[in-house]
Structure formats: C-alpha cells, structure tokens
Nucleic acid binder design. Structure first.
Lengths: 227, 227, 227, 227
DNA sequence: AATGAATGAGTGTTCATTCAT
DNA sequence: TATGAATGAACACTCATTCAT
C-alpha cells in the first residue's frame, strides 16, 4: 500500500454553542491551519495573504485583524505547532517499561504517528526550508523543538549504553542516526514526494520499521546475539 | 587512489583578448554562481533579480540579457549544477576493488566531498525547498539526479548481498539508509546549521564516518566478523 | 421627431448610500472614460497606466483591481463604446418618412451628432490608429461597428436606386462616398485638428452639410430637376 | 508626357564603386526605409529601435550613429518622405491642358499613383495617428504637405469655377470633397484593411474612379450636360 | 565606421497593509 | 467584528542609449 493521507483535515472537536461565537473563537485557529498548509506547500514568500484568508473562509482584512503582519502570522504558525509536548513525552519515556531498543522503536513509531503523519510535520519542512529567512524563528525552533527532542533521544541512547544494550556511542553523532531518517521522511513527504509520486510509493510505516531495525542492529552490542 | 579531482571551478582555457570579451564569456557562469548562492540562502521568491545581478557585478538589465526571466534563471541554475556525473561514478564503482562495505564507505565519503562540501549541495537544498513551486523541475531533478543516484546505491547494496557481505535487504527501503543521513547533513548545512551554529558544531567527516559505521554494522551479516 | 436622446452620459439611477460604495460602482466607468481620452490622445503604447488611474482620481493599483491588464483595459474601452445601436438605427430608418436624399442627409447629420461630436468618435480614431497592434480587436470592431454601418448605408442607397432617386451605383464603392467624409472629419478632429487649429477652423455642421449636398448632386439622377 | 514616375521604391541612383562604400552611403536611407515601415505598422511608441536596425541589416549601435535618438529618427522619416514636390506638381498643373474636371480626375489618379500606392502613403497614416504625440512635427507636416496640397486643389477648383465648369463652391469646404476620399483610402490601406482583408477587397483604381465621378457630377454645373 | 555588451530609468503588475463603512 | 475597496511600495522586465572594443 502506498503512503497516503493518514491525516484528517483538522479536528473540529467540541464546537461551542452559538454558530457565530464558535466561528469567532475559531478564527485564529482556522487561519493558522490554512496558513500552515499554504506555507508548507509554497513557502513563505510565495504564499499570498489573501489566499490564506480565503482558505480560512474569511476576508483579507480579517486576517490582519488577528495577525499584525504576514510575518507574525508565520511566526504564530510555527509557535502554535511546536507546542511543547516534550514534558509529556519525557514522562512517557521515564516510565517506559521495556528495553532501550524498544524505546527506540517506540520513539520512531510515535514520531511518525504524532508528527510525521500529521500536519505538524509541515512545520519541520517549513523551518528547514525557511530557516535562513527567519533566523530568530529558527533559533526559537531549535530551542523549543530540536533541543528537547535531541535531549530525549540522547537519554534513550544513554540508557541503552548504561544497560549494556548499546555499544559505546558518541552521542553527539549517534542521535542523528535516529533523527536523520525521520527528518528525511518528513521532507520527502512535503517536497519531492508529491512531485514524483511514482518514485515514492513508500509505505511510511515500513520505512520507519526498516530504518529502525537496521539502525538497532547497528547500535546494539550484539544485534541478534543477546537474549 | 584511482579517482581524482573531477570537479573544479571551471576551466579558464583561453580567456579572450579584450576585457569586455572575457567578461562576456564569463557572465552566464558568474550569474549562475551568484544566483545559486542567493536562491539557496533565501529561496526563489525572496531572491531579487537585481541582487543576483549585483552580486555578479553587473546591472539588472544584464541579467536579462542572458536569462529571459527569473524563472529561467532558476531552471538554468538547477540544470547547470546537476550535470550527470553518474556515468563516470558508475564506472568508478564498476572497477572498484574492495568489499561492499568499503564501497558504502567510499560512496558516502565521496558524496560529501564532491557534493555535500561543495556549492553543488545547494541544489539539493534548493530542490527540496522549492520542489512544490517547480514541479517540472523537480521531476527533472528526480530523473537526472535522484534516480541515477538511487540506482548506483542499489547496485552497491545488491553487490553486498550477492557477495554475502550484507544480509538480505528490501532494496526499496534500504537505499534510504544511505541516502537519508547524507540528505540530512546537506539540509542542515544550508538551513538550520547556519542559524544555530552552537548546536551544529558537527564535523561533517566524523558525522559521515559515524553514520557509515553504524549503518554498516546494521547491514552486514556479521558486523564485526568478516572483512 | 421620433428620435430623441439615445445617447447620454450614463444613467445615474440610484446612487448607493455610502461614499465608498458610490465611488466603487462608478470606478470602472470613470477609468474607461479616462482611458478613452488618453488612448485617443497618445495612443495605446504611449499611455501610462498610472496616468489613466490618476485622471480617474485613483491610484495605480486600483486600476488593476478592475482591469487585469492594460491591454484588457484597452479592449474594454473599445467594447464599451461600440455598443450596437445599429438595431435601433435600422428601425429608425425603416420607419423613416421622406426621400432617400433626406435619408442621406439625416444619416450624416445624425452620425456627426451621435458619434462624431461625442467622445464615441475617439474610438474610431483609436481603432484606425491601433488596428495593426490589435488585430483581433480590429476584427471585432469591423464586425460590430463597421459592417452594420455599411449595411445601413447600403440599404439607404439601394432604396434611393429602387425609387429612382439615385442613379445606378456600384454599392461596393458608393457607400464610401458617405463613409469617407465622415471618417475624415472624425480623424481630423482627433489628430491634425488639435495640432493646427488655424488650419481647421471648420464648422463641422457646415462641413457635413457641404459634403452632403455635393454628394447628393452626384448621386441623384436629376439633382434638382431641370434648369 | 512631361510627367512620369518621379517616385519609386527608393532611388539608388549612381551606386558608388566599392561595395562597402555604397552601403555606407546608403545606410541612412535603408534605416529610414525600415523605420517608415515599422512606424506605420506599429506606431512610434511600439516600434523598437533594435527592430528598425535589424530590418535595415545593421546593429542597434549603428542606428544611433546616424540618428541621435528614436525621436529624431521619426522626424527624419517624416521629413524625408514629404519632400516638397509641390513646386513640380504646381507647374504640372499650370501647364495642364484640359478641363477642370480632367484636372480633378488627374489629380486624384496621380495622388493614388504617387502617394497612395507607394510607401509614401505611410507618412499620411503615420502623421494622422501620431500627430498628438508630435505637435511640432504635425505643424511641419501641415505646412509642408497639407497646405501646399490644399492650395493646389483650391486652385483647381477655382479654375473650374472661373471657367464655368463648376458651380459656385465654398472652397474652404469643397477641397475636402477631394481630400477626404483619398485620405480615407490611404488610412484603410494601412489600418483596418490589413486586419479585415475580406471586408476590403477594394480595387483602389476603381475606388478612386468611382469617387471621382460621383464627385464631379456633384461639382459641375450640369452634371449630365457637357462632355 | 560598426558592433553589441552593458546600462538604468521607466513601466506594468503584484500584494501586504490600511481604513472607511 | 468583519469587510473589501483602495493604496503604494516593491519588483520583474523592457528598451533607448552609451561606449569600449
């Protein structure tokens, strides 16, 4: 099965009472949603404010009612979609019961499910594409998303090394063994993938699993020995 | 080492007599150079034609003397920098003497040296960032650069499997074990890297080597056995 | 007089409430008016879009809010001012009571009053000057304005021949006996006339009458009978 | 026959010896020729200097070697093609033997042959189309071409009135009975004619003759009497 | 004299942003 | 609050004109 939309077009959970009120309260979110899609698809510069507004179902003027400028809209899109879930995730891993290898498996699987397969993955594409145009934002992203993620992975690897599961690794480089395949998958999903569908009929789950297994063999002291 | 400098900053054979003439012949190249840098740095839309001209040391009008439009300039930049060197590389690998593992090591090392470390890596960043805005060009890139590269890697892996060095792999997915870390490195070099230098003090050579070794352990039947 | 003011500077029925709104509805018309004047005066290529906007009292951007390009503005100007009034005119002539000579007199007089003396005459000047640059538009003009006009005149002449008033004429050429002096008058009004006022102190009414009378003598079997 | 083809598509009389030299001397003329064609076809503003040069077979730079600016080129084109031949023509008519009606016939026939049918007619089209953009030039044209022409026609008509051939005419208006059909023919030839060939399959000679005869009936005291 | 590469002011067009309604 | 008409700065692209060769 080829890879496809595991995502859904936005979850309108819990609509408030009145119609107007709901829309009013939902406006910023709808705009951010629309903006995320368009920024990911066309980049910041090539996305027109009017198009964002249109896709959100409001007028151009309304957009500027909620965001003082296109640039602020962009920043809001990024900030909104980084949402520090790392505390939560950290706890998840603190209480994780299982081997370090399972943690790596779980980490990559969850990364795909919660980030890669969702609209949130657009942020990764966006930041990597636009980093040079938004250095402050890139720094913010680095600090809020990448650093915590890196720390999480380092802890996992450290744990594996401590427990004797993994061989001695240079963590500064080893983290990228997990990061690179995930980032690559996400970038492809949003750039060349849609342009050359025949060349990327990848099943993301199988991709993740495949990368994961090869990686684990590479990390473990005795890949198939142990037990 | 049978291989040598295939690249080089353009062969300046026979510079024409007059000052004007020499400059004239160099113009397209200078413009493409300047354009590559700027497109990589700021993206297509955010790069101003005049800036490209200025960086090439000419006026705005001169740019349009050589390229009929900004879009054609972009396409020329991409085309110019893809230049199928794959035939050459394929031959290099056909005559390669050594294990499949050495081929993988050599492949990634050379990828970094000839692409990653050079301005050519900008094209990769560019295409991944702008693919959605230039679908035809992305298709061209896919066909001229990615497909040959993928084939080359598939052959290497197949050879390793045939020789019993590597375990049985699903090639459709295994190629990305080599591709992903290289693409990741290149993307970082051109996007987040320059924005958060303190977070990426990576030594590319060590990165490549690290990824390579972990990967090879993951690929080989007996990671620490043969060879 | 069965005929009355068929022309008029547009019916301003029901001006909308707000200032903005009223202006908005009037914009296209104001722009077309300004554009007609300038195109007639300077030609298409030499007329700057900004000048058209300025004359209409709006900014350059507003012009492109209503017309997607300068060329479309030009086409709109022409189309707007051709407005097939020929059905109406044909009816007028069907029910005309009087001699064929009177019809010719009436025809030329009315031509001047309704076209020549009004801004509509600018379109004639414009089309003749710019035909080569707008072949499709010229064809449209030919079909919508010239062909019907020619047909009308042919019918008049035919009627005169049928009634024995006019001598036997080759209609293909005779129509120009009426057309040429009118077109000439209109061209002069818009080109050399304003440049050499001392040479064209012509009273258009007297011009039309003079041409008309000489022409009628030339057309009639026996202009005024014996003597 | 004292008069003969005085005009011709450029008189290359006395080509100098060497090829280069001839071309050198011919350059301005070739440029004026090319410019006339293009100005007539596209108007002043829409004609590009480079195109003129290309049609004349020289480079853009050479054009500005002979004419300091595009505007001066235009003026030169007009001046060159007006060439006061009126003194000559006046003499022709002074010594003309025949009736005033014959003079009118001869005048219109010759007008067509020497102006209308030749490239010189382009100047008429040009001046009428561009008069508003070149008021000084229009004044010059008025003085050098139109006024003498008008005078010539006035004299012819006056002679007819003096001899009793023509009825008493208001000369200020009567001249246009001759001028209008000729100008009309020339304008059509250069504007709508080429755009709607199916609507103008006119035989110019028959047109002139037709207009001429109708006109003469209108002018003469006894249209169907004499002759 | 002739060339054509180079220039840069000028123009059409876009689009983020404002503001009267 | 929401609208969308209006704005004008910005940019791609053109082309008359210059000038080194």
């Amino acid at each position: 099965m080829p890879l496809s939309k595991l995502i859904g077009p936005g979850s309108p959970e819990e609509p408030p009472s009145g119609k107007r009120e709901r829309r009013k309260e939902a406006r910023p979110g709808e705009l951010l949603d629309a903006a995320l899609d368009l920024f990911v698809e066309k980049g910041f510069a090539a996305t027109r404010a009017e198009e964002v507004a249109a896709r959100a179902g409001v007028s151009k003027g309304t957009l500027f009612l909620y965001f003082p400028s296109k640039e602020e809209l962009f920043k809001a899109v990024v900030r909104e979609n980084i949402s520090g879930r790392f505390k939560e995730w950290n706890e998840e891993f603190e209480t994780f019961e299982g081997s370090a290898a399972d943690m790596v498996r779980y980490c990559m699987k969850v990364w795909w499910e919660r980030i890669g397969a969702t609209r949130a993955s657009g942020i990764t594409k966006l930041m990597i594409s636009e980093a040079r145009n938004f250095p402050e934002l890139a720094a913010f992203y680095q600090q809020e998303a990448i650093r915590p993620g890196t720390q999480l992975i380092r802890r996992i690897l450290q744990r594996g090394m401590d427990s004797g599961e993994f061989r001695q690794l240079d963590l500064d480089y080893a983290v990228f063994s997990i990061v690179a395949p995930m980032i690559f998958l996400i970038m492809m999903k949003h750039s060349l993938g849609p342009c050359a569908p025949q060349d990327y009929p990848l099943d993301p789950e199988r991709y993740v699993q495949s990368q994961c297994e090869t990686l684990l063999i590479g990390l473990c002291v005795r890949p198939d020995g142990g037990s």
